[in-house]
Structure formats: structure tokens, C-alpha cells
Write a protein that binds this DNA or RNA. Structure first.
Length: 942
RNA sequence: GCGGAUGUGGCGUAAUUGGUAGCCGCGCCAGACUUAGGAUCUGGUUCCGUAAGGAGUAUGGGUUCGAGUCCCUUCAUCCGCACCA
């Protein structure tokens, strides 16, 4: 019987669906395992072969765990809100829900063909009101919470109100936007409006005026990770800084926990590093400097308190609020000009001109608290308002940025740290600063002779003694801006009374997205939701018109999968207690600073509320690499150049192309990209090429000869990103149609290690297709005779290899092991049920359709999916002898088969007396014999 | 600039703990079958050399009986961060 994959795959996909084979429920008799793919955004382009890579890997793992006796949760759904559908709506007027639905259906159709074991009964979509009810619900919880630094968790805001009304801010240690001090009496005397405004300083979801990344083209603000080089990641439009009233999430309250939590996670070091970097914890000191001749002071943050005697100037950010007070009349004009210029510079300019030094002197001086030196206060845009206090003490000798600034404006440089083992030198001769935290303090009074580390601690001690500074930890992490001026997102369950936001009652959730007449901002620049009719509460209060950003819906989706149809709760306690968190998360590394940090925050907050039982959402994560395209290139002749090179006139009307290996081709031709579908084995189908594009219909070709003397046109190739514009896209549907889903699944895994990026080679898929045909052939006439020792050995070698390799996410080597095994069994002409039955089970995670078919052909009526993975038994693979490689001076010369129980001297004897050894022992004496049982024999001669 | 990853045949890769470098597959070469082959099967395929043999895992060095693997140097490619005080 032929291997008819088309028929087989259709049959079993229907069987699985009709019999709900992949449906899972909480089952306390089995251990749970949760395997999750990162939430896809269903784009209009559909899937190319790179997308299913991670899905296939997680599918294999899920199926394997199931065979190993686990109750496996393996769901899929859609991150359905997003900009592309909305952009399309703006252009065409099509409701984004319609576009999204269409794209989802296409995704689903493509995924179904690949035979994934998702429990589709658990599908969620972020744009579904049943789902976003809980996104809104979580937002309200955040709005109604504050973060207690003492107990290190979120607490109800009502509790804070209690505290404030009893003690004011006395002894309060909570996360806030800026420190506030007031008494209980003061609090109690506030109007409701004032109280509400004060609470905004503490809520975990709060409204504030902030500088945002405003993208005029998209009409919305963007998160930092949605901006690159001053352009929007989606669309590439310019982004400017602008102050706007926005919702923010106080993720900074969780900075330390987000940092510490990384230690408990089984993620790659590189992703953890990216997150550590993003959180950017730095320990240092805050120091207050008095301003000379004025009764004011200002605060700086430094990690190098030890260098305080090396401070020769101060720098404030152009947005610093004390600039006015500090500017002398003589300097006022210049300062104003500079500040205006700096504020108006776009983010893009600022980034591209990082190296350019600019700044202005305020006219004021700060006073060094230890020696009274007057230190000029400057303003420069190399100091950022958003970090620390927006002011620094500049130590040009030991900070490269300060050094550049000092050199540019001719400011003094004082060395205060000597390099290890070196004497201090004249900074005037330096070409760069010495930034390393190594060395010994000099020119620094009581710090002299201390190492940098000691000096930092000592200085902080002194500062605290004087009451002008203290040790302080800073984080680079910023609160997450949570408002988008967009239509296609979750509405905020917030209404405004006297301009103050109030939370809607939970009973009004979900607050459904209203329909509007156009998907653009209003004429007055308000978000699209301002177009909605009756966008007010029952009492007539206006409802918030911003919507939530993309990461709102994707931050807690893995929790909803545990109990996706629950109408009364986000998810039940029972479901959460059982499924806990994700055991294996597979997806791209590009979400390192977005989704993966927001989800962790979201989860920690729900953990604080006591509704999520685990502090971290994703225990183990694997980041699959990209599949690159293999583009084909045809060389187009530059006729003038060719005439010059060959010395002959080129008579040819249409475009002329030259085969890759023609003589001097590189001298007179340039490559153009060719559709990979008209190139086979790097040979161009010239007729198809002419028909491909109108401008090529008269194309002519200079051929080369193949080995049989035929004219062929050979293309060159190139590895690059897979994209439509490069004509190198491989569509999984086409491959499934040609080879079947099982072949595609195997090939995607066979390509190489999951984490690595690798090019897609269309040719190579033939190999896995041949393998499946060979595999199929083994099963044509099953014999019930007992298996031989050799056959059992082959089987058990494979069992061990597959188990070990799947556990360490090495799927490519398992496919290879299967090929070896099938080659061996084919050579043995093995057709024993005792071998082939377990093999069918073992291949089912990789090639479920063929496995199911063969399983049923062997007379079973139940699904192969529900079987038990065969047990490895070491007794089947024991050997009595070992084929030793025999080396002389580390170079292998021959093999020698020896019993495993041989002693060292017997081995030595056997080797020296082996006929092959003679030649290598002539004229030399044996110095040493290295014998490692079951490994190697090495004879050292000389 | 900082941080991370990677570097092995013509190509994708394998070698899990320092122990036979190149498994498996693609491609290529030769042969068989065939009216035919972008089908199937068999054999070969790191490089140099007829061979014996020699060289060989980006580069140069080191540790070791033995290094793709460990340490140091340099180079290349990719990814992330980037005035974060």
C-alpha cells in the first residue's frame, strides 16, 4: 500500500476533532503539565514556514508529556487587538473586528492542516467581551490598589485611605509618583477632589501628565519598546516627545521583585540579562548640594559617591524644575535659548547626535560640602530628566561623558582615583577618563588610600552623618504608559466626575467597545472613542475615551486558558490550583522587554491579590530562532559593461541575463531577486521567468552547460529575511499539500536546533519525506514473531535517545535518531510487531497522522495519542565487547574489539600484539598507555 | 561603547561529562531499474595525495596522554541595550 498522506491526514484530523481527543479537564489523578505558545497576532499575511516552528516544537513536547502520563494543557488563542487591523479600518472603513475575524479564520485553517493537539475548546480572543471583561477587571483592581514597600505587595487603596486619615504620611513607605508629606488633619480637611488627586500619587493604575512618545501619523502614544531610533516599530513613522495626560501602570513598584524573580526562572541567560538591563538597578547615593549665596539646595544621584572630591561642575537636565531659580540674570537669555532648543529637539535628533556636546552655564555655583569649593552649575541634554533626579555631579576624570563635556567647555579635571599600581598623573595629558571601579583614592582627604568600593561606603557614611545624603537604589525601569488614542482596544471602565476619574462598578463589566462612524481621531484631536454616541454612564458622566494598549490583553491570557468560560471569575481557584503556571513557554525572544515583563508584573499583582497561586507566570522558556529565507538571484547583464569586457557589441533587445558560472559574469552583471517557485535546484525555469513579470517577457539568456552538455541557466542564492518582497516565502499550506503535514513537522524540527536561526532550504524536505515513506514500508506486513536481540537493541537505543533529547529540547537530533533507527531496521528487514508498535507510539509526537494510521492498521481501535511511551530497559543495550579506537600520541590509527571486562595490563598486551600496532611501535618505546574503559586506548610513544 | 550569542564539508547540521571529528539529511558523483524521470534502489562523497600518508572544527597561543569541547588572544557575523550618572 502506498503512503497516501493526503487521505491519512484528513481522516485523522477529523477523527481527533470529532472524538475530542485533545480536550482536557482538571484531573487530580494525573500530574499536570502546561505547554504554551506565545499568543499570535493574526496578521493578514497568514503563516509562513517560520511561524509554526515554535508551535510544532511545543506540540511535540505536549504530545510527549501526554504519552508520559501527564495531563497536558496546550491551548491556543489570539491577540486580536492590534494596529494593522485598525490602520486597515482607517483606510477602508472596514470594521477591525471583520478584518480580525477573517485573519483568525485563515490562521486557524493553516494551523489545522498541521495537526496540532490544541484544545480548541479553550480558545480565547482578547477582543471578545467575555475575555476583556477580565482585562478591565484587572485594571480596576490596579486602580484600587497601592504598593506597600514594607510588606512588599499590593494592598487595597481603602487601606491607604485609612492610614492617611489616621496618621497622614507619617512613617508611610509606599510606592508613589513623588514623595508627599502631610498630616492626618491635613488629609481629612481635603475636599474629595483633592483626596482623589492625592490618591493618584499612589494607585497602581494612575492618571498623570507625562512625557510620552507621540506618533502623529498613528495618532497615538507608544511604549518605549514600540519605538526604535525615534521611529515607530510598526509603520516606521516619526515619534516625538509630548506631554499628555495618560494612564500609567506603576510597574516600577515591582522592579525589585521583577529582578529577583529572574533567579528562579529557567530562561536563557541572555533574555534574563535583557530584562536585568531593562530594570537597570543601580545602587548609589543621593546627595544634596547647597547653592552658593542662595538658600536652596538640589539633589543628585550618583553611583560614585567616592569621587565627590573630583566634582568640578554640576549638570541639570534642560527640563529640571530649578533652572529658573538657579539662572542668574546675566545668563538668563542664553539659558532660555538653550532650554528651548533642547526641548524642541526630536527624540530622533537627540539619539543620532549623542556624541555632540552641548550645554550652557546657569551662572550659579554649588558648594562642595567637605571643602567648600564652588562648583559651577551647567545645563545639558546629556542629563536625562527621567532618570535619578535629573541632576548629576560631574566627575570628568572618572566618567567619559563628563570628560567629553569638560574638554568641550574647558572645565577643570581632577583625578581622585589612581589606576591599580599606578601613580596619579596630570589629567591635562589624558585622552580619556578612567571609569573603572578599580584603584585607590587620591586627592580626597579622608578617602585617600581606600579602594573604590571601600570609599563609596565610607562616603555614604559621612553623607548620612552630615544629613546631606544617603545610600539609594535607582531603577531604570519606567512606569508603563497604558493609554492609547485608538479605537481597536479595550475601553477603560472609568468615568469622569468633575474631571476626576472614578472606577465603574464591576457589575457593569464588560464595558463593551461602542461602534463609531470612522476610526480616526475627532477633528479636535480627541481619540476615536469620542465619536461614540452616548459614551456616558447611566448617570450621564462621560466615559474615558482612551483605550488600553496591546499588552493589556496579552498579559494574563495564560491564566484565562485555565478556565476560559468562567463568567463569574477571571478563573476559578480550583483550576488555578491545579494548572498553577506555564511549565514550558515557547516563543520569540523579541518580547523580552515587552510582553515578558508586563506579564510577569500582571501575574505578580494577581498573586498579591491572592487569585494566582504562583508568583511567576512562565517557569521555563525556550526562544525559537528565526527561519530565514533562501532567496534566488539571477544576474542581469549590464550591456555596456559587457561590451567593454568582451570587446564585442551586444545585440539584444530585451533584458539579458547571464548564468551564474559564466566567465567574467561578475564583471558585467548585477543580481535581481527571482521568485523561488520558478527555480528548482538553482536552475531557472526560463519560460516561467519570462511569464513572471511583464517587463521580462522578452528576456534573453546566456546559458552555461551542465554535465550532460545541456544549456542551463544557474541562479545564485542568498540567505535573508523571509518576506513577500524578496519572493522567498515558503507557505506551509503548499508544503502540506505536496508532502503532508507530518513531513513538514519533521522537517521543521530536522533543520537544526530550535533556538538557532537557520535558512529554509526547500530541497531538504525531500529527505524527511523519503524517511516517512521508508518508515511506512516497515509496516506493510507485520509479523507477530518475537523480536531478535539486535532488533530490541535498536529499539531501546532509540527510546533512550528520544527521551533524553526531548527533555533537553533537542528535537533535530531525535529526527536524526529516527532515521538511523529506520535505516537499521530496514537493513534487518524487521517487521516485528514488538518493535513496530512501540515505534508508532514514539513517532506520534512528531508525525501524529502516520502514527495514528499505522497504529490502527495494526488492529488498534483507540488513539495512539492516548498510549504510554515505551519503557527503556537497559538490559537490551548491554554489550560484552567494545570496539576501541587505538591511538598513538593522540592520533587514532586503528580499531580493536576487546571484551569489556579486560584489565589494563591485558589490554596493553592485546594492543601491543595486534598486527596493526607493529608499524607504529617500530623504533620507538612505549612511555605510557592510557586506557579508559568503553572510551579509548592511547599509547604514548617516543 | 556595553552586554549576549554564534563560528565545524558545497549546504543544514551531529559529536550530552575533555576520549574515534563530520552522524543524519540536502546537494553532488557513479551504477541499477526504466519509454521517460524533479520516481525508486545500491555504492561513494572534509581537503591534498594514485597510494602509503598528511592536513583539518574562524585566528594565534596555552593546559592535557588526548581539545570542536577548558583557559587566554585576535577576527568575523548576528542579536539586544545605549548619554541610565
Amino acid at each position: 500500500m502506498e503512503y497516501n498522506f493526503e487521505e491519512i491526514e484528513k481522516k485523522w484530523q477529523e477523527y481527533w476533532r470529532d472524538n475530542k481527543i485533545y480536550h482536557v479537564e482538571v484531573d487530580h489523578d494525573k500530574p499536570k503539565f502546561y505547554v504554551l505558545d506565545m499568543f499570535p497576532y493574526p496578521s493578514g499575511a497568514g503563516l509562513h514556514v517560520g511561524h509554526p516552528l515554535g508551535y510544532i516544537a511545543s506540540d511535540i513536547y505536549a504530545r510527549y508529556k501526554r504519552l508520559k502520563g501527564f495531563n497536558v494543557l496546550h491551548p491556543m488563542g489570539y491577540d486580536a487587538y492590534g494596529l494593522p487591523a485598525e490602520q486597515y479600518a482607517i483606510q477602508t472603513g472596514t470594521h477591525p473586528a471583520i478584518t480580525t475575524e477573517k485573519n483568525i479564520n485563515r490562521y486557524r485553517e493553516q494551523m489545522d492542516k498541521i495537526g496540532f493537539c490544541y484544545d480548541w475548546d479553550r480558545e480565547v480572543r482578547t477582543s471578545d467581551p467575555h475575555y476583556y471583561k477580565w482585562t478591565q477587571w484587572t485594571f480596576l483592581q490596579l486602580f484600587n490598589s497601592y504598593y506597600c514597600n514594607k510588606c512588599k505587595k499590593a494592598q487595597p487603596i481603602s487601606q491607604l485611605v485609612d492610614i492617611l486619615s489616621k496618621n497622614g504620611t507619617e512613617g508611610l513607605d509606599v510606592a508613589c509618583t513623588k514623595p508627599m508629606t502631610f498630616t492626618a488633619a491635613h488629609w481629612n480637611a481635603m475636599s474629595e477632589r483633592e483626596q482623589q488627586e492625592t490618591l493618584m500619587n499612589y494607585r497602581l493604575a494612575y492618571l498623570a501628565d507625562t512625557m510620552v512618545n507621540w506618533c502623529p501619523e498613528l495618532g497615538t502614544v507608544l511604549a518605549n519598546d514600540e519605538v526604535q531610533d525615534g521611529l515607530s516599530v510598526r509603520g516606521g513613522y516619526p515619534v516625538v516627545r509630548k506631554s499628555m495626560r495618560q494612564w500609567l501602570l506603576r510597574i516600577t513598584a515591582y522592579a525589585e521583585r521583577l529582578l529577583q524573580g529572574l533567579e528562579t526562572l529557567d530562561w536563557t541567560e541572555s533574555i534574563k540579562d535583557v530584562q536585568r538591563n531593562w530594570i537597570g538597578k543601580s545602587m548609589g547615593a543621593s546627595v544634596f548640594f547647597k547653592v552658593a549665596d542662595k538658600d536652596i539646595d538640589f539633589e543628585v544621584f550618583t553611583t560614585r559617591a567616592d569621587t565627590l572630591f573630583g566634582v568640578t561642575f554640576m549638570v541639570l537636565a534642560p527640563e529640571h524644575e530649578m533652572i529658573d531659580q538657579l539662572t542668574t540674570d546675566a545668563q538668563r537669555k542664553e539659558v532660555q535659548e538653550y532650554v528651548t532648543w533642547a526641548k524642541n529637539r526630536s527624540e530622533r535628533e537627540r539619539m543620532s547626535e549623542v556624541k555632540k556636546v552641548s550645554g550652557v552655564f546657569t551662572g550659579s555655583y554649588a558648594v562642595n560640602p567637605f571643602n567648600g569649593t564652588r562648583i559651577p552649575i551647567w545645563i545639558s541634554d546629556y542629563v536625562l530628566m527621567g532618570y535619578g533626579t535629573g541632576a548629576i555631579m560631574a566627575v570628568p576624570a572618572h566618567d567619559s561623558r563628563d570628560f567629553a563635556f569638560a574638554r568641550h567647555f574647558n572645565l577643570p579635571i581632577i583625578q581622585v582615583v589612581a589606576k591599580p599600581g599606578e601613580e596619579p598623573s596630570d589629567p591635562a595629558t589624558w585622552t580619556e577618563s578612567f571609569d573603572a571601579k578599580e584603584g585607590v583614592l587620591v586627592n580626597s582627604e579622608f578617602l585617600n588610600g581606600l579602594t573604590v568600593k571601600q570609599a563609596i561606603l565610607r562616603m555614604i557614611e559621612e553623607l548620612e552623618k552630615l544629613g546631606i545624603g544617603k545610600g539609594k537604589t535607582n531603577y531604570r525601569l519606567r512606569d508603563a504608559i497604558f493609554s492609547r488614542q485608538r479605537y481597536w482596544g479595550e475601553p477603560f471602565p472609568i468615568y469622569y466626575k468633575d474631571g476626576m476619574p472614578y472606577a465603574m462598578d464591576i457589575k457593569h463589566l464588560p464595558l463593551e467597545l461602542p461602534s463609531i462612524d470612522a476610526y480616526k481621531p475627532t477633528e479636535t484631536g480627541e481619540p476615536p472613542l469620542a465619536r461614540a454616541k452616548n459614551w456616558v454612564t447611566e448617570e450621564g458622566y462621560p466615559i474615558e475615551t482612551n483605550t488600553m494598549p496591546g499588552f493589556a490583553g496579552s498579559s494574563g491570557y495564560y491564566l484565562r486558558y485555565m478556565d476560559p468560560h468562567n463568567e463569574n471569575e477571571y478563573f476559578s481557584k480550583e483550576a488555578n490550583d491545579y494548572w498553577q503556571n506555564v511549565d514550558l513557554y515557547i516563543g520569540g525572544a523579541e518580547h523580552a522587554t515587552g510582553h515578558l515583563i508586563y506579564s510577569r508584573f500582571w501575574n505578580k499583582f494577581l498573586f498579591d491579590l491572592g487569585i494566582a497561586c504562583k508568583d511567576e507566570p512562565f517557569q521555563k522558556m525556550v526562544n525559537q530562532g528565526m527561519i530565514q529565507g533562501r532567496s534566488s538571484l539571477a544576474y542581469r547583464v549590464n550591456k555596456e559593461k559587457m561590451a567593454k569586457v568582451t570587446g564585442q557589441k551586444v545585440n539584444c533587445e530585451g533584458p539579458l541575463f547571464v548564468s551564474k558560472n559564466c566567465k567574467d559574469r561578475e564583471l558585467f552583471s548585477d543580481p535581481i531577486l527571482v521568485d523561488i517557485n520558478i527555480v528548482h535546484n538553482d536552475i531557472l525555469d526560463t519560460e516561467a521567468f519570462k511569464a513572471w513579470r511583464d517587463d521580462l517577457k522578452d528576456a534573453q539568456f546566456i546559458y552555461e552547460k551542465d554535465k550532460d552538455g545541456n544549456d542551463v541557466f544557474v541562479c545564485d542564492w542568498l540567505v535573508e529575511k523571509m518576506s513577500k518582497s524578496k519572493f522567498n516565502v515558503q507557505n506551509p499550506d503548499d508544503l502540506v499539500a505536496k508532502y503532508g503535514a507530518d513531513t513538514l513537522r519533521l522537517y521543521e524540527m530536522f533543520l537544526g536546533p530550535l533556538e538557532q536561526s537557520k535558512p529554509w532550504d526547500t530541497q531538504g524536505i525531500e529527505g524527511t519525506f523519503r524517511f516517512l515513506k521508508k518508515f511506512w514500508k516497515l509496516y506493510q506486513e507485520i509479523s507477530d514473531e518475537p523480536a531478535t536481540k539486535e532488533e530490541l537493541k535498536v529499539l531501546h537505543k532509540l527510546i533512550k535517545k528520544e527521551e533524553e533529547d526531548i527533555e533537553r529540547i533537542s528535537f533535530n537530533t531525535v529526527v536524526s535518531a529516527f532515521m538511523i533507527c529506520v535505516n537499521e531496521l530496514t537493513d534487518m528487514k524487521c517487521n516485528k510487531r514488538a518493535i513496530l508498535e512501540p515505534m508508532a507510539i514514539m513517532i506520534s509526537p512528531y508525525a501524529p497522522h502516520i502514527a495514528e494510521e499505522l497504529w490502527h492498521q495494526m488492529g488498534h481501535n483507540d488513539s495512539v495519542v492516548n498510549q504510554k511511551f515505551p519503557e527503556f530497559d537497559a538490559k537490551n543495550v548491554v554489550e560484552n565487547t567494545f570496539l576501541y579506537p587505538v591511538s598513538f600520541n593522540g592520533k587514532k590509527r586503528f580499531d580493536l574489539e576487546l571484551p569489556l571486562d579486560m584489565k589494563q595490563d591485558e589490554v596493553q598486551n592485546a594492543v601491543v600484539n595486534a598486527p596493526e600496532a607493529k608499524k607504529w611501535l617500530e623504533g620507538v618505546s612505549i612511555r605510557k598507555v592510557i586506557f579508559i574503559p568503553k572510551k579509548i586506548i592511547n599509547i604514548v610513544v617516543g
